[in-house]
């Protein structure tokens, strides 16, 4: 059974795609879906992306992590062939992303970072238009479960998109990316505007696609999001890849800001020797500090006191990077 049912005009695209080493039904998990080779993009004098080398295999979710303006969107748009590389290249399923973008697009579901839809079309009409653009005569095979995904995410498909909230527009855009059950999903900050439940369901959908064999590149500036869905993480900053690590390694460098209220003020210096604790500020019965890496020693220490309230949140990435590398964006640039 084919997952694509294309009309005549896109036949060339389909056959070149199927003649290649890939078929949707036979998924080799080790197969490379995306490969960039010293991919570089310059805008005038600004280096937006500096010799990026990344690989992504089928069935894998790669979290693309970095603060805003780091080059995530630039990378995804290079992979889509929207931008021409200044040097280097991106290869998607054996096709050059710039020169053979049609062939690439036949295999990619794309969720842009800044979702803009036709305000007067309903979600269903938008899907229908995109399906025609994709040359899908009908949603054969797994695509028909789009109805199911729409229900799970609670998408309002019968209202004009312009009247929807940002989160609901985002859900429509996600359905557009899933259209045709593409073997590669490029998702640029996909959960922006989604409520926590919507995010959770969305992450589940992404995982399911990956388990069905799709490769997923998901960009985010939130570590916890990437943590939930990604198998591997590429961290990018000022257009440069700083690490391409497993999540374990990244988690070890993760930082949390913690705010604790005690029933009685703990004795001064009670937290001086807890490993991974920095920026300790104790003010009577209140403690503010930053925990890096394992939080367990800190929790064990806290257990010795009566705790009234505990608030912990993930430090934002820019903070983490500054702590890790100790210099600002400007120093990174050459």
């Amino acid at each position: 059974m084919l997952s694509y049912a294309r009309a005549g005009e896109h036949n060339a695209v389909r056959s070149s795609f199927e003649d290649g080493h890939r078929s949707r039904m036979v998924t080799h998990l080790s197969e490379t879906v995306v490969r960039t080779e010293a991919l570089t993009k310059r805008y005038g004098g600004t280096l937006a992306l500096d010799r990026l080398d990344v690989e992504l295999s089928a069935g894998q979710v790669l979290g693309f992590l970095g603060p805003n303006g780091a080059g995530k969107t630039t990378t995804l748009r290079l992979l889509m062939g929207s931008l021409r590389p200044s040097s280097g290249r991106a290869v998607v399923l054996g096709h050059d992303a710039w020169r053979e973008r049609s062939a690439v697009h036949a295999a990619v579901g794309y969720l842009p970072g800044d979702v803009r839809l036709w305000p007067r079309l309903t979600g269903a009409q938008t899907l229908e238009y995109m399906r025609r653009l994709r040359g899908l005569t009908r949603p054969a095979g797994p695509v028909s479960d789009l109805d199911d995904v729409a229900k799970r995410l609670g998408v309002e498909l019968d209202r004009p998109v312009g009247s929807l909230s940002k989160g609901n527009r985002q859900k429509v855009a996600l359905l557009l990316a899933l259209l045709g059950d593409p073997p590669l999903l490029l998702l640029d900050e996909p959960t922006g505007g989604l409520d926590p439940l919507g995010q959770q369901e969305f992450h589940r959908v992404v995982r399911e696609r990956a388990e069905a064999g799709a490769a997923v590149l998901l960009s985010s500036h939130v570590l916890s999001e990437v943590e939930r869905v990604a198998d591997r993480v590429a961290v990018i900053r000022s257009g440069r890849l700083i690490m391409l690590e497993s999540l374990e390694e990244l988690r070890r460098t993760a930082r949390h800001s913690v705010h604790v209220r005690f029933a009685q003020p703990p004795p001064p210096g009670a937290f001086d020797r807890v490993p991974g604790l920095t920026d300790v500020r104790q003010d009577g019965a209140q403690l503010r500090c930053t925990v890096q890496g394992e939080i367990d020693p800190f929790i064990k220490t806290l257990a010795g006191f009566q705790v009234v309230d505990l608030v912990s949140h993930e430090a934002d990435l820019e903070e983490t990077f500054l702590a890790l590398y100790g210099h600002s964006d400007g120093d990174e640039r050459r």
């Binding site: 896109h10 695209v13 049609s102 062939a103 697009h105 990619v108 842009p112 803009r116 653009l133 040359g135």
Partner: peptide, 8 residues
């Protein structure tokens, strides 16, 4: 960008 994300 959305239109051109398809094979057209």
């Amino acid at each position: 960008e959305l239109v051109l994300s398809t094979p057209i």
